[in-house]
């Protein structure tokens, strides 16, 4: 927990570097800090899906992801008085979420079982699935299930640091700079981890993809 606390404190140190004047999140944070708890509801509603998605893709387990997302919001609420706005609220929240998840996964390294959110029917009509399933001997639903399992297995095979970078960059669409702030490392480190992780994944998923 000290790791998480340290993470929130680093980002909570006062710094005039980032202007928060027109930032709607900062306005909400100030309201929460002034005692208006309902403002925190708005922040939860705004970020819960993105935060859950990140944690879900790190754990490949929907129940764990729900618990960890809730834990993240509670920690953020408890620490919000220390948040001074030198980073965006989103980065600060993500950092708590990622650190909470990594701490959880380190403690439960041996326990690995999946519990997926279902892929919606629209995905089965996508070009990628049509393309891949047309060459598969199994029917489309079975193929999609296999592919989903394989993708999640591939991610879980990566180390926590490499998995985090892949999830944040390739799935969540964050920039290298944002990831570096969240993971408290250099952008070059993010790029190198991403390169290595994608090599690993390409090898694991080689039956489905074009070789680089």
């Amino acid at each position: 927990m000290n790791f998480i606390k340290a993470g929130t404190e680093v980002l909570a140190k006062p710094s005039p570097a980032i202007s928060q004047e027109n930032n709607p999140d900062w306005a909400l944070v100030q309201k929460v800090q002034a005692g208006e708890v309902s403002a925190f509801d708005q922040l939860v509603t705004k970020y819960r899906e993105r935060l859950y998605s990140t944690i879900y893709n790190l754990t490949s387990n929907r129940e764990d992801a729900a618990d960890l997302t809730q834990e993240t919001f509670i920690k953020a609420f408890q620490s919000i008085q220390r948040f001074k706005g030198n980073a965006s609220f989103f980065t600060w929240l993500y950092r708590i979420g990622v650190n909470t998840t990594l701490t959880y996964l380190k403690k439960r390294r041996r326990r690995r079982f999946f519990n997926f959110d279902a892929l919606p029917d629209e995905v089965s009509q996508s070009e990628i699935i049509e393309n891949l399933s047309s060459k598969s001997k199994t029917d489309k639903p079975t193929f999609m299930k296999e592919l989903q399992e394989k993708l999640n297995e591939g991610l879980q095979m990566l180390s926590l640091k490499h998995r985090t970078v892949v999830v944040l960059f390739e799935i969540e669409g964050l920039t290298h700079q944002e990831i570096a702030k969240i993971m408290k490392c250099r952008e070059a480190t993010v790029r190198s981890r991403l390169f290595y992780a994608k090599q690993q994944l390409q090898a694991y998923l080689k039956d489905y993809i074009q070789h680089p």
């Binding site: 998605s53 959110d117 390739e170």
Partner: peptide
């Protein structure tokens, strides 16, 4: 081997659709 067109990035983007 199933495809010579789909990239790793394409496959990872599929995970964006796994939603509750």
């Amino acid at each position: 081997s199933l495809s010579n067109q789909v990239t790793l990035e394409d496959l990872l983007k599929l995970k964006r659709h796994e939603k509750p």
